[in-house]
């Protein structure tokens, strides 16, 4: 016992204190969001702040149970587009992550496992687009999209993010290490080239596909700038745009805003806590299209 205590040095105690302090800093605002979802504005901005929602919120007669969530869904001007906006965000994020995975793996496969004229040129051309930040081309993209009459459409919101150069790069790097013998064996067995891609390459790239899919889902779920340009009607707006409405000047409804933020975060929390290793793995690589 004494021996064990002796092993814990002052240094280690300091390390633990600092690590826990950082931990409190990162998670307390999230806990704040969660508890504030069950408080009224008076309690959220009370001095001193109490971390436990008052029982009044749940019991008082004049206020509906879960009233913040009700207002979050109904909107601050009783325009209930919450579910539509949530659905829009889901449609955009899911579509873009699926197409990113498919197109990037197809292109990465072509670049990694085939020799053809102009291959290096194509690879360099695609890589060079990583240097073009989305923020620098959003105005001309907006003109392209409005020229094609795609303002206020899913097409306009989805198409600019169908695939990312980073995704192509990641898939290519992964497939370079893929044993060519498998591919040749399948060719001998008479599988067509698209068949090899669909039956051999895709099923054998699951980890990188998961990482890439999650990254691209998260980026679209987080996207505010492009929907601000393209989604102008209430029905086509996305969840980040919906949340900004609660902060508008002099209409701030703190409780409903936190409830709305909480609701909007649930899909990401579910993804994060079930697939955290892909998130943490994906963090270690850089995505140039992230804002």
């Amino acid at each position: 016992m004494n021996k064990f205590v002796g092993k814990v040095t002052v240094w280690e105690v300091i390390i633990w204190i600092i690590l826990i302090a950082v931990l409190l800093f990162t998670i307390f605002p999230i806990i704040f969001m969660m508890v504030a979802s069950f408080m009224d504005s008076k309690q959220i901005l009370a001095m001193p702040f109490t971390w436990i929602p008052s029982s009044e919120y749940f019991t008082s007669a004049d206020r509906t149970f879960f009233t913040n969530f009700y207002r979050a869904i109904m909107g601050n001007n009783n325009n209930p587009t919450f579910f539509r906006n949530l659905l829009n965000s889901l449609i955009i994020a899911v579509t873009d992550s699926v197409t990113t995975v498919l197109l990037a793996s197809l292109c990465g496969y072509g670049l990694a496992k085939f020799r053809f004229k102009g291959r290096n040129f194509i690879f360099l051309a695609i890589m060079s687009t990583m240097m073009i930040p989305f923020e620098a081309i959003m105005i001309p993209l907006y003109m392209v999209v409005s020229g094609m009459n795609m303002i206020n459409t899913y097409r306009g919101l989805i198409i600019p993010f169908l695939v990312s150069a980073f995704g192509v790069f990641q898939m290519r790097q992964y497939l370079l290490t893929f044993p060519s013998e498998y591919l040749d064996a399948s060719r001998v067995d008479g599988l067509s080239e698209p068949g090899i891609y669909a039956r051999i390459v895709l099923p054998n790239s699951k980890p990188v596909i998961a990482t890439l899919g999650i990254l691209s889902f998260r980026n679209q779920w987080d996207n505010l700038l492009w929907p601000l340009l393209v989604a102008q009607s209430e029905a086509m707006k996305t969840i980040p745009q919906y949340i900004t409405k609660f902060s508008e000047e002099k209409m701030t409804d703190e409780g409903a805003m936190m409830a709305c933020a909480f609701l909007a975060s649930i899909p990401m929390f579910i993804l994060f806590f079930t697939l955290s290793r892909y998130f943490l793995g994906g963090a270690a690589v850089y995505d140039s299209r992230k804002g």
């Binding site: 950082v22 931990l23 990162t26 998670i27 605002p29 999230i30 969001m33 998260r218 779920w221 987080d222 505010l224 969840i239 980040p240 949340i243 900004t244 933020a261 909007a264 975060s265 990401m268 929390f269 993804l271 994060f272 955290s276 998130f279 943490l280 963090a283 804002g291």
Partner: peptide, 13 residues
């Protein structure tokens, strides 16, 4: 995992 959690939230949140 805990340090990374804020990165999961969207910027607007």
């Amino acid at each position: 995992l805990m340090y990374y959690t804020p990165a999961v939230l969207s910027s607007v949140v």
